[in-house]
Design a binder for these strands. Structure first.
Lengths: 156, 156
DNA sequence: TTGTTAGTTCTGCAAATTAAGAACTAAACA
DNA sequence: TGTTTAGTTCTTAATTTGCAGAACTAACAA
């Protein structure tokens, strides 16, 4: 099984991508795996290639891969007469993921509405600011939905 | 110093908000503090009131408060002839924060462009998908900027 | 039937996070 | 001058996280 060679630049890029994913809340190992699958010349890598290239243990790789599989961030193909799975980045999942994380962000709004609903009328100034934020987030939410629609239309 | 009473509903709402913030990457104690400042009837609470109401130690409160202060999530006022600081949620910071986290999200784009630039031409299909994602994210970024402009205009 | 491949699962450790409690400090008061 | 107040900082201590390494498994191969 041929092993993957990375240039210094590629290694650095993987680290930088890794940091980005970690900051977004992902664990270190999955972060590196997804970064590797984006950067390496080959786009389809086996379990062993991932372990070796990233210098992580099989258990770390197994957990990382399963996490990413169930999140839909990666998938794999197989070749007939070859028991190995070839893992690859599901690049197209990014649109969905962007959308999902936008929704999470904007999901705060529901909670803020509940907060406002239960607040005493007496804290008028505070309530008014809160109402403004809620209105803004609703606005943003609607507009973001429109952007996605606009994009789909534009693609045609 | 009068102590803060919370209804069962308020306590639950604080926990739910707390979980939201934790999922967004904030530590538990700061998450509860900000939630408390949103939910409690009084919008301006002292250090001691925060400690007592949330049942956290002074050190936990001190660290949480300083974190939130330096993130701009809360601020405080003082009353003349009263050494205490009265902490409150900077509700208006949410627009900025929303924007910041959008930018972080969309900042992935710069990295993806770098990835694409260093990829071999041979992985054409992959590169094409990547290019599509980049184009989409650029589109999204521009549109989001427009939304903010539109909002500011609309407020007048 | 024995071995090999492609992983998975289990056990345990090392490092990082988070908070408690106590000791400390700086300002204001008495 | 000592005392109280409003915090801060320091030192543990308790979790939690994340991974290595080894043992395991299931499928196929020889």
């Amino acid at each position: 099984m041929e092993n993957i060679k990375l240039t210094q630049d590629q290694k650095q890029l993987i680290e930088r991508l890794g940091v980005h994913y970690e900051r977004a809340g992902l664990q270190p190992a999955p972060s590196r795996v997804i970064a590797l699958l984006l950067v390496s010349d080959k786009t389809e890598l086996t379990f062993d290639q991932i372990c070796e290239t990233l210098k992580i243990s099989k258990s770390a790789a197994s957990n990382a891969i399963n996490l990413l599989l169930s999140a839909g961030t990666i998938d794999y193909i197989t070749l007939s007469g070859d028991r190995k799975r070839y893992f690859r980045s599901r690049v197209t999942s990014w649109k969905e993921e962007t959308r999902k994380s936008l929704n999470t962000m904007l999901g705060l709004n529901t909670l803020l509405q509940e907060v406002l609903d239960q607040r005493p009328k007496s804290s008028k100034e505070f309530n008014d600011s809160l109402q403004e934020v809620i209105t803004f987030m609703e606005f943003l939410h609607r507009e973001v939905d429109n952007i996605f629609i606009k994009w789909e239309a534009r693609k045609k």
